[in-house]
Design a protein around this nucleic acid. Structure first.
Lengths: 106, 106
DNA sequence: ACATCATATGAAATGTATGTCATATGAGAA
DNA sequence: TTCTCATATGACATACATTTCATATGATGT
């Protein structure tokens, strides 16, 4: 395992594809092709980004035959998403919150 | 004020300069030139990044004469840094943690 | 062994945030 | 008003992550 900087920590989540993967895995553990379906993204793209998440221990993997199942490190991710949620809702009170877009003007 | 995506939230912190600013402001509120001194970075660089932090309500500003004082939104940032800290220390047990560098091999 | 399904990886092109440098604005003092 | 200090902003070049496409590896079944 590798060591992580604070910067790296945030970089990992500063990406739409990886956030979609995380949200998909919040619902349930999945293998790669199910993740692809669930977030409607290409397999190689998903695999590349799974690697990033895995390298930083935000997800764990387990092979079962042909499939590789990924699951979340909920210890870190659940409370973190909660803080983000709270911040977004506190400072964006007119419910224009979008999970996967950049700034949206009022 | 503008609305924020999850992605944007993390992007803001996925930057060494902004993390240094945050850490400096954890210690104490400061005006711009004091921040520059404290983190040893150029003024325009700091100002650009203060703007990013401020636009997302991670810091507040208050002018006092010639100086502009910035202070942290501790509600969001303190618990968030705590989670990052915990993750880093849990998954990098051989105390090679660096706050402002990328991966370091074991 | 071979075919097929599932996943991982390499390399190259592209898009985008970041820093830099120059300049503008704002505030107080003289 | 003018000068200086303090901060903000605009625009451009660059560096870097991300995606894409092609291909490799791994596992199972026949």
């Amino acid at each position: 395992m590798k060591c992580m900087s604070y910067e790296k920590f945030f970089e990992v989540f500063a990406n739409e594809t990886r956030l979609k993967i995380v949200e998909s895995l919040v619902e349930s553990n999945k293998n790669v092709s199910d993740i692809c379906k669930s977030i409607n993204e290409e397999q190689s793209k998903v695999s590349h980004n799974l690697k990033v998440l895995h390298d930083c221990n935000f997800i764990t993997k387990e092979r079962n035959g042909k499939h590789v199942f990924y699951s979340l490190n909920k210890t870190t991710i659940k409370p973190m998403l909660k803080i983000v949620d709270k911040h977004v809702h506190t400072f964006c009170k007119d419910n224009c919150v979008k999970k996967h877009e950049n700034y949206i003007p009022r």
